[in-house]
């Protein structure tokens, strides 16, 4: 995969927005990989949690916005409790989701949910998936 690194990307408002929404200093990450080592979702991810942080540092907006990983992360907080730099990776991933959801790019189109699914799964599952995956 070819990645273009440029001052323009790094200084893009996207990076500032992620830091603001997540409340995290992305440059604190030294890429140890501990977050990815313990993440239960990596087998379904295209970008690993440590790569998400690296891409965010570099302002690789398109790659992040199109990544599958942001919709696979279930905010389980395993990475957060283990990061030796105290970075809240789950918050960074939520910030990327929010940037998309605020453009109404819903991940879960409610009209696609069948009546069977709506009846079977408990309210706690429906409400949390709406909260995480819809605008």
């Amino acid at each position: 995969m070819r990645i273009n690194i440029s001052r323009k990307n790094i200084n893009d408002l996207f990076v500032a927005k992620i830091q603001e929404l997540s409340g995290q200093n992305l440059l604190a990450c030294y890429q140890c990989g501990k977050c990815s080592a313990g993440c239960p979702a990596v087998s379904d991810m295209d970008l690993l949690p440590n790569q998400i942080i690296r891409y965010a540092q570099l302002g690789l907006k398109d790659e992040l916005m199109h990544s599958k990983s942001i919709w696979v992360c279930a905010s389980c907080m395993t990475c957060n409790v283990r990061c030796p730099r105290g970075i809240k990776i789950a918050e960074v991933i939520e910030a990327i989701r929010q940037i998309l959801l605020r453009k109404r790019a819903d991940h879960l189109p409610l009209e696609n949910l069948s009546p069977e699914v709506k009846c079977q799964v408990p309210p706690i599952a429906l409400i949390s998936s709406f909260r995480k995956f819809t605008s």
Partner: peptide
Amino acid sequence: TECCAAYKTVD
């Protein structure tokens, strides 16, 4: 303490 994937159960 491994996450069960929580609300991913919907989608």
